[in-house]
Amino acid sequence: MPLTSVSTADGTLRISWTFPAPAQAVWAGFTDAALLSQWLGLPVECDVRTGGTIVVDHSGGYLSRSVITDVDEPRRLAMSWEFPEEPESRIQIRLRDAEEGTGLDFRHHDLGALVDSYGPGWITHLTYLEGAVAGAAIPAGQFWPLHATFETLYGARVEADAIKG
């Protein structure tokens, strides 16, 4: 897994990842409804332009809704993030050339006390994104077992950081 770093500060989750794929292929993972369905959920709406919306059904009636605030294909995407029973937050995605392919700098802002609960989820989703971009979709039934593993590892990291701090 090419997860290169995870950090939290001021209620912002920061994840850096390297994909062994060109930027345009990774970009498609965020903008193509067929690829979105392999890693994030079923797209109900997918209008990736400034002012457009992305609505994703995460199953069980849980819909995320995002309004696109900035697009610079294939390098930058910014949007709001609305999830049921949570305050609105913001996501920024930046793609850059990396030695092994494409680097992703993912930022989820304004999470406040939810910041650590989002870490394992986004790491799981980005693992699925990597599979989708590579043309090797991970079976949906593996999501929660994989999430549980990342949750355990992430929790250990948070505890270690608290001891250091």
Score class of each variant (00 low, 15 high):
residue 84 P to E: 00
residue 26 V to N: 08
residue 19 F to C: 00
residue 37 S to W: 06
residue 65 R to T: 04
residue 32 D to M: 03
residue 40 L to A: 08
residue 3 L to P: 01
residue 7 S to E: 07
residue 39 W to L: 03
residue 37 S to P: 01
residue 38 Q to W: 06
residue 83 F to T: 14
residue 54 I to W: 04
residue 19 F to T: 01
residue 53 T to P: 06
residue 4 T to F: 07
residue 71 V to A: 13
residue 46 C to N: 14
residue 17 W to K: 11
residue 6 V to C: 09
residue 70 D to A: 15
residue 11 G to S: 13
residue 50 T to G: 02
residue 69 T to E: 03
residue 57 D to W: 11
residue 67 V to K: 12
residue 40 L to T: 06
residue 37 S to L: 04
residue 43 P to F: 10
residue 61 G to N: 02
residue 52 G to N: 14
residue 63 L to V: 07
residue 6 V to L: 11
residue 50 T to V: 15
residue 36 L to M: 01
residue 4 T to L: 06
residue 62 Y to C: 04
residue 15 I to N: 11
residue 45 E to D: 07
residue 69 T to M: 10
residue 20 P to F: 03
residue 30 F to M: 09
residue 78 A to C: 14
residue 8 T to D: 12
residue 32 D to Q: 04
residue 53 T to Q: 15
residue 6 V to K: 13
residue 84 P to R: 08
residue 66 S to K: 06
residue 51 G to T: 12
residue 66 S to R: 11
residue 13 L to R: 04
residue 5 S to P: 00
residue 46 C to T: 11
residue 14 R to I: 04
residue 20 P to A: 15
residue 58 H to W: 11
residue 77 L to Y: 13
residue 14 R to M: 01
residue 21 A to P: 02
residue 16 S to K: 01
residue 38 Q to R: 12
residue 6 V to W: 03
residue 48 V to M: 12
residue 82 E to D: 13
residue 4 T to D: 05
residue 24 Q to E: 13
residue 74 P to D: 01
residue 68 I to M: 05
residue 3 L to F: 09
residue 68 I to K: 07
residue 41 G to H: 10
residue 41 G to D: 10
residue 3 L to G: 06
residue 28 A to C: 09
residue 16 S to V: 01
residue 47 D to W: 10
residue 78 A to L: 03
residue 61 G to V: 01
residue 70 D to G: 12
residue 31 T to I: 05
residue 43 P to N: 01
residue 25 A to S: 15
residue 31 T to S: 03
residue 52 G to Q: 08
residue 32 D to T: 00
residue 68 I to N: 08
residue 79 M to Y: 08
residue 26 V to I: 10
residue 25 A to V: 05
residue 74 P to F: 00
residue 22 P to A: 15
residue 7 S to C: 03
residue 59 S to I: 03
residue 55 V to Y: 02
residue 67 V to L: 07
residue 76 R to A: 10
residue 29 G to L: 02
residue 78 A to F: 02
residue 30 F to E: 09
residue 38 Q to V: 04
residue 42 L to S: 14
residue 17 W to I: 10
residue 15 I to V: 09
residue 10 D to M: 06
residue 23 A to T: 11
residue 4 T to Y: 08
residue 22 P to R: 14
residue 5 S to W: 05
residue 29 G to D: 02
residue 75 R to M: 00
residue 78 A to N: 09
residue 29 G to Q: 00
residue 9 A to S: 10
residue 54 I to V: 15
residue 40 L to D: 01
residue 69 T to F: 05
residue 68 I to D: 05
residue 36 L to N: 00
residue 76 R to G: 01
residue 8 T to Q: 09
residue 25 A to I: 02
residue 65 R to V: 07
residue 35 L to N: 07
residue 80 S to R: 12
residue 34 A to M: 02
residue 48 V to E: 06
residue 75 R to I: 00
residue 66 S to E: 08
residue 56 V to A: 08
residue 10 D to E: 13
residue 39 W to N: 06
residue 82 E to C: 13
residue 28 A to G: 15
residue 75 R to Q: 03
residue 49 R to D: 09
residue 81 W to L: 12
